[in-house]
Design a protein around this nucleic acid. Structure first.
Lengths: 235, 235
DNA sequence: CATGTCATTTTGTGATCACAAATTAGACGT
DNA sequence: ACGTCTAATTTGTGATCACAAAATGACATG
């Protein structure tokens, strides 16, 4: 017996124990999703080093797909390749924070309005459901769940735009500020977070573009305003 | 003799024939710049397949750094990984074109204005020099030189902003529309291209933010308006 | 106790291999 | 001449190796 690998690594096993045929680039995609979700839900702390072999071992895959994924995420500025080759989650600075806020305010209201004509009742119901779940988790203080749901809420809207250009840009922005958000939530908690999700939902139901822009803008400003204070108080 | 490799591949030889010490990731960076410049100057045609081994052989390097670079550029939407794993320069569609135009108009005037306070006489002189050279090349019809210089002009401004967030986003946008621009220039020539570079330079000299915004906005609208017509007339 | 030095280990990088999927070319039959 | 099936080739993917640079730790010296 000399299958060179991959029973465990290259993927999902079915009940009979045979590895599934496995599509092209499946391993890489699995790693990609893992790391992305990890970043978006704050499981990676800014400044933390990410090693190829470490991640590979953690995910039970060979270093190869990990290398490619880290390069991809570095290209999106979600990770930082330091001059010595080491990869780490970028540290947040006040300047970077200001720029991220500005970029979000420029792009996200625009994309939300673009999405408005495509949002159907199905989407509205999903948004309501997500927002309910957020409310249930807020007092609990589960920062990871909050971040996952907040991301789901925003991108449920944005994805409806069918955008192939703006959406990836915003993807990159979220990957960049999420790890920092996590550290802030860890300090100030999630109990007194406020969002404008309900205003956004109402604007969508009424097909009111300007109102949706306003809700998204306020949601970003308020949400990151909180973080802004936190950034000024530390150092 | 069994040096495992790299005399030719891993880079710059010195006069004595010994390979230079070579920094970390130097080969990858060389490949990255090659492909980026190729995209920005239109040496890659939309729809053209890019193979790992092909590029590797062309650049005299092993497939490894090429793989990583292609993944990076795919993450920036400068290249497209098709479901079968093949990599190609994305085709332009009217929808994508509209979105690219919209994104440029949102981000580039903003970044130009951010850069304004940092632009010194040195930069202005460089801009004038670049613009002169553009004028000299326009009638010549050298599309590749025009694209290189136009990129140099815009990014000489943008880079002064010292932005770590908006600049990479705009980078991605240029990588996306440049290959298509090249095909358009090949069809309509470069002789009757008009830009607002001189207005931009004047605005910078006068430290006039709104005027700079207006110049950049008009430059984008006019420049891509030309392409817009071309996109409607083909199919 | 602090500090510099040296050996050990970790880590990223580029090269190469084995394999499967996909494409291409060619032969063959209709 | 045209479509179809098969064989050969090309290509991407994941694994592994060899090497150098970097980080880490131990230890001696001040």
């Amino acid at each position: 017996m000399s299958v060179r690998q991959t029973a465990l690594s290259s993927g999902i096993e079915k009940r009979d124990g045979n590895p599934v045929p496995s599509k092209r680039g499946a391993t890489r995609e699995q790693v990609d999703h893992s790391v992305r979700n990890g970043l978006l839900t704050g499981r990676f702390i800014p400044g933390k080093a990410v090693t190829i072999r470490g991640l590979a071992a953690e995910l039970g895959v060979s270093p190869m797909p990990v290398r490619e994924v880290l390069q991809r995420l570095a290209a999106e500025n979600a990770l930082e390749v330091k001059p010595n080759g080491r990869v780490q989650v970028p540290d947040m600075t006040p300047e970077r924070f200001e720029e991220l806020l500005k970029a979000r305010l420029l792009l996200e209201p625009e994309l939300a309005e673009l999405a408005l004509p495509h949002l159907r009742t199905l989407d509205v119901n999903a948004l309501i459901s997500i927002d309910d779940e957020i409310d249930r988790h807020l007092t609990g203080g589960d920062a990871e769940a909050y971040m996952r749901l907040n991301h789901a809420f925003h991108f449920r809207i944005y994805r409806a735009s069918l955008s192939k250009v703006l959406l990836p840009l915003i993807d990159s922005l979220w990957l960049q500020f999420a790890p920092f958000m996590r550290t802030v939530y860890g300090r100030v908690g999630t109990a007194n977070l406020e969002d404008r999700h309900k205003e956004a939902i109402r604007a969508i139901e009424q097909k009111n573009g300007p109102a949706l822009r306003a809700a998204v803008t306020a949601d970003i400003s308020d949400g990151m305003g909180l973080l802004g204070k936190a950034i000024l108080t530390d150092t």
